[in-house]
């Protein structure tokens, strides 16, 4: 095992994939005060929540803040979690609310930016030569917030329309329309 020396953790900023399996008992145990269960939830969902927040907000730093706030609120609100309900929609409802709050804060900040200091990320057109993922992100950022959120929840986070409707309080047909319009825009801009 001598070969291990010096190999430990140069890993800040590494990519983390899903933890392979989620123990469905974790939310109930965490609700009843099992802190190791709460750690298990954070370990499992952190990467996925970070992905959603990054896609929604467009800023890595703000995304991390949104995710951290989300888990604080999850921990504080566990008494209101219905044990017979699925955990994902409840978690993503809190996360989506945090993202909206941060985006509103950012909009207020941006309104204070003087002419000539508009950030590059405000550009709505894909840059020539940008790779595919960047182009997709630019088009996504140009979508109205409601369409972006509905598209991400449905097609990236793979939640059902019924779950998204329960989370957001928006009717099924309106949700489908938001997703459809998002897809139409992606198609028109990326094709």
């Amino acid at each position: 095992m001598g070969s291990l020396r010096g190999k430990l953790s140069h890993t800040l900023g590494v990519r983390r994939e899903y933890v392979s399996e989620f123990d469905p008992t974790l939310p109930v145990r965490a609700k009843h005060g099992d802190e190791q269960a709460f750690i298990g939830i954070v370990e499992f969902y952190y990467p996925r929540c970070l992905r959603f927040a990054r896609n929604m907000i467009g800023s890595e730093q703000d995304a991390e803040e949104a995710v951290q706030d989300t888990f604080v609120r999850v921990h504080d609100s566990f008494s209101r979690f219905d044990e017979d309900s699925r955990f994902d929609p409840w978690l993503f409802r809190i996360l989506a609310n945090r993202c909206r709050t941060l985006m509103a804060r950012n909009r207020r900040r941006q309104s204070l930016i003087e002419y000539g200091e508009i950030p590059i990320s405000a550009s709505a057109e894909p840059e020539v030569g940008a790779d595919w993922a960047e182009e997709v992100q630019v088009v996504l950022n140009s979508l109205p917030m409601e369409q972006r959120e509905a598209f991400l929840l449905r097609h990236v986070e793979d939640l059902s329309y019924e779950d998204i409707a329960a989370m957001t309080g928006v009717g099924l047909s309106a949700l489908r329309m938001r997703v459809k319009r998002a897809c139409d825009t992606l198609r028109a801009r990326l094709d």
């Binding site: 983390r16 990054r54 992606l186 198609r187």
Partner: peptide, 17 residues
């Protein structure tokens, strides 16, 4: 095309240790 876009957005963000 929408599938491709969704896959591009599905890449996980780096998680700091």
């Amino acid at each position: 095309l929408v599938d491709r876009a969704a896959r591009a957005l599905s890449a996980m963000s780096p998680v700091k240790a």
